[in-house]
């Protein structure tokens, strides 16, 4: 319990509460505003005349007879075929997460159990790779991918994202496996398992919390990627984020901006749900690196 001496003076308490409130508005308001505005016409969302129009939807009501309209969403999803991009993102995310967790788990486990010097150098290399912006690698991909005729298709992007994802996955899972006592698999080996059997029978059943946290971050990397997708995918194979960027290029005609707004809101919803369900894991993953130094 907080003692009397630790209790805050009223003025500080008010100041602190006001600050939290201010930050809450800063963090949440842009999203709420955009979600609300995505059901309006452009003249309401960008209202020069009177900003309350964005709240009441006066222009929207004048056009559609109701303060809410889903034309932005229809335009984006049906007319501009945004569902294709959503599908592509789904495919990319699914395969990136599955593949990178599969090979990352094996690698991370090996790194955590080997005592030789080279594990250190491998981890350092991974750290350097992790720090490099993906865009710097793209110019290295283009020529060979054109040459081999694999530019523009989803599998190429998936494998590139898996590779870019590996350094982080390895670090995360390495430190996670370090926390699983090696006596567990040692004793399995004494009982006659080989290393892989020990891994499969002893480690796999207890590794899921760490794998899920790592998987979340792999998912975010694949979902949020812009540089790789924009450069390595052909127009028909685009994922969501490059597609939204492309929308912006064609927003000169009226109504199209609202397509982009609707698409942006649609792309934010899965992230919103993700944070809602996995808040604990995300916070845990973010701080895991910090606490270990």
């Amino acid at each position: 319990m907080a003692s009397r001496a630790q209790r805050m003076p009223t003025s500080l308490r008010i100041a602190s509460s006001l600050f939290v409130l201010l930050w809450f508005i800063l963090a949440a308001f842009p999203f709420l505003w955009t979600v609300w505005g995505s059901f309006k016409v452009e003249l309401d969302f960008f209202s020069i005349a009177d900003w309350t129009n964005a709240l009441t939807g006066a222009r929207t009501e004048a056009v559609y007879g109701s303060p809410f309209t889903t034309t932005g969403y229809e335009g984006a999803w049906i007319q501009e075929e945004f569902w294709r991009n959503v599908l592509n993102t789904g495919i990319v995310c699914f395969f990136v997460v599955t593949i990178s967790l599969t090979i990352g788990t094996l690698g991370g486990y090996a790194l955590s159990r080997s005592t030789y010097n080279y594990t250190f150098w491998l981890l350092i290399t991974a750290l350097i790779f992790r720090a490099m912006p993906p865009i710097t690698l793209v110019s290295g991909y283009l020529l060979p991918f054109f040459e081999w005729n694999i530019w523009g298709i989803l599998p190429t992007t998936i494998i590139v994202l898996v590779a870019i994802n590996q350094p982080f996955t390895l670090w995360m899972l390495h430190s996670f496996f370090k926390n699983i006592p090696s006596e567990l698999d040692e004793s399995a080996k004494v009982d006659g398992c080989n290393q892989f059997q020990a891994f499969r029978r002893v480690i796999i059943p207890v590794m899921w919390p760490g794998v899920i946290t790592t998987g979340l971050f792999s998912f975010l990397l694949a979902y949020n990627d812009f540089a790789v997708g924009a450069m390595l995918l052909s127009e028909s194979n685009r994922t969501m984020v490059p597609a939204i960027a492309a929308f912006l290029g064609t927003t000169q005609t009226e109504g199209n901006v609202m397509f982009a707004v609707a698409a942006v809101v649609s792309a934010t919803v899965p992230l919103f749900i993700l944070v809602m369900f996995f808040q604990r894991q995300i916070v845990g993953g973010l701080t895991a690196g910090a606490v270990k130094g």
């Binding site: 690698g107 590779a163 290393q195």
Partner: peptide, 24 residues
């Protein structure tokens, strides 16, 4: 054993991170 465990991820990083750096 280490090599077999590490091979898939190592290969992915070699082909799609290390080689592109050389190429860049």
């Amino acid at each position: 054993t280490f090599l077999w465990f590490f091979l898939p991820t190592g290969l992915a990083m070699l082909l799609f991170i290390a080689m592109p750096i050389v190429s860049v």
